[in-house]
Amino acid sequence: MLANAILIAMALIILALVLNIWRVVIGPDITDRILALDTLYINAIALLVLLGIHMTSAAYFEAALLIAMIGFIGTTALCKYLLRGDIIE
């Protein structure tokens, strides 16, 4: 029951990742691509959490936390660059 649910959830998340990459490829503007990359890292965290449940290992949460922090910093830096032409003023 639980193993099947994890597999189905993984399939759904991987489909979501493929859709995000498709938006990164076709995105007409630079902000669309940044938004797609933002969604991509959130879905990657979801996949890591699912892997942590699947393998019954708590080590995946540190990776999830690191990806959350670095993804947020990346999105913020790109947006600041678009807004100001500089990241750290």
């Binding site: 993984m10 759904l12 979501a16 879905n43 979801a46």
Partner: peptide, 28 residues
């Protein structure tokens, strides 16, 4: 197990719906 499975499918479904919205909606 049933509760965990419901939360798993619900969460993955919402993530997929968000990504479909990202792909299909008309403007930024």
């Amino acid at each position: 197990d049933i509760i965990i499975s419901i939360f798993l499918i619900l969460g993955a479904g919402f993530a997929l719906v968000g990504s479909i919205g990202l792909l299909r909606l008309p403007d930024f």
